[in-house]
């Protein structure tokens, strides 16, 4: 394996004539076109963070803020900035680790089960929650936890105030997240494991390796690149828009003020404080701050990974 990699590494340094590269550029064209169109062309919008944005003058024509960083002020001055930054980090790391570990475990177990019918049924079942939108999950949670009509309180016969105690939500939020996403990641990892050449396992079995040894020395190392890519992508999303799923944090706790200490992340905080003002400049400012932190984190970890295992690096 490792010798092969070295050869590849040498190949990269050779100069490849453009004619040889041309077909690839043709194939990349549509993808790059749409990425440019959808993601790069709107980029000047970042400028709004430094502007006193006004629709009549447009993005470029609007006046610069004076001082330039005034739009950033509100976030850093808020008394909860520390709590919500902590929450953002905590939940993302916790969820990333939980989902990854559980999903890998499940996919390995699924791979062990050779019974076709049972694996199909299991896979289908754990994938079900992925189909639900967060607002539906909010309804489900409410029907479970509602103080007077909820199923849990009916079962235990007491009136537990689920929506008033922040402590519960430190557990409920990650659990709900894992519940919704673990199926998705399991399926990705099952696909990754399916891609492993069965020769390796056959050879290992001939050598008398136990199941556990096979998992440790074949499966895990070979799906490592997938794990790294997914984790890196996660780090990136960590600070940029909370996985596009931030409304989980907004909808799940029913927007309950008493829980903000435990449930607020940067995005929900920003959404809430600017709801009445509707100020695009301040929203853009916080977005930019998140992007910059995300950028540092991703490039930092990518750099480290490049040193350890160059093939797994994102770029």
């Amino acid at each position: 394996m490792s010798r092969f990699k070295k050869n590849q590494g040498q190949m990269v340094k050779r100069k490849v004539p453009f004619k040889r590269q041309f077909p690839f550029y043709v194939m990349m064209m549509p993808g790059l076109f749409f990425i440019t169109l959808l993601f790069y062309l709107p980029m000047p919008g970042i400028l709004i963070a430094f502007k006193n944005f006004n629709p009549i003058d447009g993005i470029f024509g609007s006046e610069w803020m004076d001082p330039l960083f005034k739009n950033f002020e509100f976030f850093f001055k808020s008394d909860t900035a520390k709590t919500i930054t902590f929450n953002t980090l905590l939940y993302n790391v916790l969820e990333a680790v939980l989902v990854t570990v559980i999903a890998i475990a499940l996919s390995i177990m699924l791979n062990e089960l050779k019974g076709k019918v049972s694996t199909t049924v299991y896979k289908g079942a754990i994938l079900l929650p992925t189909f639900l939108s967060w607002i539906v999950i909010q309804y489900i949670l409410f029907s479970l936890l509602s103080i007077d009509k909820g199923i849990f309180n009916n079962l235990i016969g007491r009136e537990v105030q689920w929506y008033s105690e922040p402590f519960y939500w430190r557990i409920i939020m990650p659990l709900a997240y894992v519940w919704k996403n673990v199926g998705y990641y399991s399926v990705l990892y099952v696909a990754a494991i399916a891609g492993i050449n069965t020769d390796y396992y056959e050879a290992a079995q001939l050598d008398g390796a136990t199941k556990w040894q096979q998992i440790r020395h074949i499966t895990l190392p070979l799906i490592k690149p997938t794990v790294i890519v997914l984790s890196l992508l996660w780090v990136g999303k960590l600070f940029s828009g909370g996985l596009g799923d931030w409304n989980a944090f907004y909808t799940l706790p029913n927007n309950a003020g008493a829980l903000y200490g435990a449930t607020d992340v940067i995005d929900t905080y920003v959404y809430r404080s600017l709801r009445t003002l509707g100020d695009y400049g301040m929203t853009a400012a916080v977005g930019l701050y998140q992007s910059l932190v995300g950028l540092i984190l991703v490039f930092g970890s990518n750099h480290v990974i490049k040193k350890i295992d160059p093939d797994s690096a994102l770029f």
Partner: peptide, 13 residues
């Protein structure tokens, strides 16, 4: 604006 944004999240809470 800065003050209003910060106050409104506290009021909400």
């Amino acid at each position: 604006k800065t003050q209003i944004a910060n106050c409104s999240s506290i009021i909400d809470e």
